[in-house]
């Protein structure tokens, strides 16, 4: 019964991985024709390239900042949305909205909204009297990268909040009631009941978000193409440029594999850490199984 799904996954995902590994060991022409093996030359070239290290470093910042930011925002938001208050339905719908627009379109809209002289963000800030002169948001790398990270966080919030909401609504009420009786305060309930019980959901959110964010191209590509002066390049945008602008398919394949390796190592490491921590705490196996799956 698992065979059909296995076959499709093998075909669509397995084959290209092998193709990629094969390509990364060869000299590849500008247009992808294989020109014979050259061992690890492609990898050597990648590791000798300062732009690679810059992009790698920025990828780490990007991933940690976006995933971290999304988690920090989503958990309190989910807790509020899980509670009863007037207009909760509306609030839920609004928080989920960014999910309904494609990332590409979100990025296009933001690029326009952040436009220096015609952008509506500057319009709002100027109307409110916060700034007198328009700010060119995307002109320098630090500002542009910060904006991109914030947008990254924004679009990651719905998915993360959904996972947390799912988790929160499955928490046993009796634990809270017992805690109330014991006189535990808000923070105590959060620290000793909510957080431990939410752990598996937080773990899932971390693993899935890291994978998605690490590989995410559209926001940065549409807004700045990794510029100015490569100051917002992360590995995917650099990879895209190498492959499709410069036609360095061998080097691009090598970077693809390195990226895959990084993610793979991260996930394995994370799953092991989580499982170990849970065994120590004596939490049931099932929880880790859901992370693993």
């Amino acid at each position: 019964m698992i065979l059909p799904s296995l076959l499709l996954a093998m075909f669509i995902i397995g084959y290209p991985i092998i193709d990629l590994a094969w390509t990364s060991l060869q000299q590849v022409s500008r247009f992808g024709q294989l020109r014979g093996f050259n061992g690890f030359d492609n990898f050597a070239e990648v590791f000798g390239d300062p732009l690679f290290y810059d992009s790698l470093w920025r990828t780490l910042i990007w991933t940690v900042a976006v995933v971290g930011g999304a988690l920090l925002i989503s958990l309190p938001v989910a807790m509020m949305l899980n509670d009863e208050f007037f207009g909760r339905g509306v609030a839920r719908v609004i928080i989920m909205l960014p999910w309904a627009i494609s990332l590409t379109m979100t990025a296009v809209v933001w690029r326009w909204g952040l436009n220096g002289r015609a952008g509506l963000l500057n319009a709002s800030l100027m109307d409110l009297g916060i700034i007198a002169e328009p700010i060119e948001w995307l002109a320098t790398a630090p500002l542009a990268f910060t904006a991109e990270i914030l947008i990254g966080i924004l679009v990651s919030v719905p998915f993360t909040t959904t996972i947390f909401l799912g988790g929160l609504s499955s928490l046993p009420q009796d634990a809270y009631e017992a805690a109330m009786v014991d006189g535990a305060g808000w923070w105590g309930r959060f620290r000793y009941i909510t957080l431990p019980l939410m752990k598996p959901f937080i773990n899932i959110a971390i693993v899935l978000n890291v994978i998605y964010v690490f590989n995410s191209l559209p926001i940065i590509w549409v807004m700045t193409e990794g510029g100015p002066a490569n100051g917002t390049d992360i590995l995917v945008t650099y990879l895209y440029k190498l492959a499709f602008r410069f036609g360095q398919l061998g080097k691009a394949s090598a970077i693809s594999l390195i990226m895959f390796g990084v993610l793979f190592a991260f996930t394995i490491l994370y799953v092991i850490l989580v499982m170990r921590a849970e065994k120590e705490e004596g939490v049931k196996e099932e929880v880790s199984a859901s992370v693993e799956g």
Binding site: I13, Y15, D19, L20, L208, L263
Partner: peptide, 17 residues
């Protein structure tokens, strides 16, 4: 295997695909 397939970004695989 399924988890690994999650890790591959389409971008990374786009040429092979």
């Amino acid at each position: 295997f399924l988890l690994v397939t999650q890790m591959m970004s389409p971008i990374v695989l786009v040429l092979g695909l």
